[in-house]
Amino acid sequence: MSTPFAHLSILAREQPLRVLLVNAGEADTLTWAGLAQPLRLAARLLGGRLQLDVRTPRQAADGAADGLADHAGAWHLALLVADETQAALPPPLIRAVIERCRAAPYWGGVGAGVLWLAEAGLMGGVRIALPWALYADAEDIAERAILTPNLFELDGPHLSCCGGAASADFALTLVEALFGPNVQAEIKEALCIDRVRGPEERQRVALQARFGALQPKLSEAVTLMEANIEEPLSTDDVAGLVGLSRRQLERLFKQYLGSLPSRYYLELRLQRARQLLLETNYSIVQVGLMCGFSSGSHFSTAFGTLFGNTPREERQRKLAG
Score class of each variant (00 low, 15 high):
D62N: 13
G73C: 02
L39G: 06
G113S: 10
L93Q: 06
L122Q: 15
G73I: 00
A65R: 14
M123Y: 08
R55L: 08
A103Y: 11
A87H: 09
D83P: 00
H71E: 04
G124Y: 10
A103I: 00
W107A: 02
L122N: 14
V110W: 06
Q86P: 01
G109R: 13
Q51I: 09
Y106Q: 00
L93A: 12
R95A: 15
P38G: 08
C101P: 01
A60D: 03
V114I: 10
A118W: 04
V110P: 02
L130N: 14
E99Q: 13
R100K: 13
A60I: 03
G48Q: 05
A74W: 00
P38A: 02
A64G: 12
R55M: 04
A64L: 14
R49S: 14
P90V: 15
R44W: 01
W116Q: 12
A87F: 04
Y106N: 00
E99Y: 05
G108N: 08
P57W: 03
R40G: 03
W75K: 03
R55V: 05
G108K: 05
V126Y: 10
E119G: 11
T56A: 08
R49N: 11
V110F: 10
L89T: 03
W107R: 08
A61S: 12
D62A: 15
T85Y: 02
I94T: 13
A129K: 14
Q51G: 06
P105W: 09
W107Y: 05
P90S: 15
V114H: 14
D70G: 05
P91D: 09
A104G: 06
V110M: 05
L89Q: 09
D66G: 14
A120W: 10
L50P: 11
E119L: 13
G124F: 04
A74H: 05
T56R: 14
C101N: 09
M123V: 02
R102P: 01
W107Q: 03
L130S: 13
A82Y: 03
R95P: 01
